[in-house]
Amino acid sequence: MGDGPAFFDAWRRLDTLVAHSYEASLQFPGRKVLNVKILCTAKRVPDPEIKLRVAGDGSGYVKDGVKWVVNPFDEIAVEESLRLKEKHGGEVVVVSIGPADAAQQVRQCLAMGADRGVLVKHDSEVDSDAAARAFAKIVEEEKPDLVIMGKQAVDYDSAQAAAILAELLGYGQAAYASKVTVSDDGKSVRVVREVDGGLETVDVALPGIVTADLRLNEPRYASLPSIMKAKKKPLKETTFAELGVDATPKVKSLKVAEPPARKAGQLVPDVATLVKKLHEEAKVI
């Protein structure tokens, strides 16, 4: 094989014709393609920009008319999976648990570039524990090398499912990832984690679990052709019953309410007044 610029150019052109760009093998001809199979999870959640209303019975929020999106952290997880696949080769499978309509959000992930989808159809809310137990069954079937999830689902802000899944499977975990690199031998991932006081680096043996934090990447937008193509990608539907998993939540919502509103404050005309009030009225400086 040649390795001059012409060779590279030819390959780069060809590269645009094939679905998967194996950057690693292009840059380092002869380097082993690792083929990492990645399973990522994507939950349908209300658009974080909207205001939710308390449901009449007080046990949840009003879902009618809500604009749904892929959980922002899960979009980052999908993006990271795609980047790892583009670098190392492999496959990306997206799994979601939710009502039939959540198929839309799975399709969105397929449009970003994921290869296959699995939707565990379930109409009522499941807690992170039941979700993790369903994922555990799917991981046993799919046998991915790496599972990438969101750090938290922004509807209930629980941030539990990934660590529960890791414990159920006996895997290592690296939550709040801001950088993920697969080791040369493909046996572990090195993850930089955003924690209190700085950045921690850990190596997680594969198969293992990573959760995406905000600064891991900037998710791509799906192009129109890829949205069309996503319609034909395989999306398997299943249920808790088919998986043999009990969906009964261990954590039940008793009541939901609007938080008490903060008392409206005052506008001050200038800095001198502000400092005087902070000193004499609020007594905080």
Binding site: P46, L52, V154, Y156, S253, K255, P259
Partner: peptide, 10 residues
Amino acid sequence: MFAGNLHQWV
């Protein structure tokens, strides 16, 4: 929950 938009008792 939901970035503190709502409070939940579980």
